[in-house]
């Protein structure tokens, strides 16, 4: 469970970074006016992705062990 959540956070973080990066980059923009991010706060999504990916380390260490039966 611990490994699954940690891996999920790392992958989720990378996905957020990719979405944020691609949405913030002005792909195909012909003018400066058209080069704003595809949606508001896309760069913040990139930053959030970085934070989520690194926070996976916290989950991996802090999540309590499953109680022994």
């Amino acid at each position: 469970m611990r490994k699954t959540i940690t891996l999920g956070m790392v992958v989720g973080g990378i996905v957020l970074m990719l979405i944020g990066y691609l949405a913030a980059a002005p792909w195909g923009a012909d003018t400066v006016a058209n080069s704003d991010p595809s949606f508001g706060f896309a760069p913040a999504l990139f930053v959030l992705g970085v934070i989520v990916a690194f926070s996976a380390a916290l989950v991996y260490e802090l999540m309590p062990d499953r109680p022994e039966r």
Partner: peptide
């Protein structure tokens, strides 16, 4: 957070 451009070095620095 709204308009930072990834092609700018500032984006890398701040993010």
């Amino acid at each position: 957070f709204r308009y930072a451009r990834p092609q700018s070095p500032f984006f890398g620095t701040f993010s």
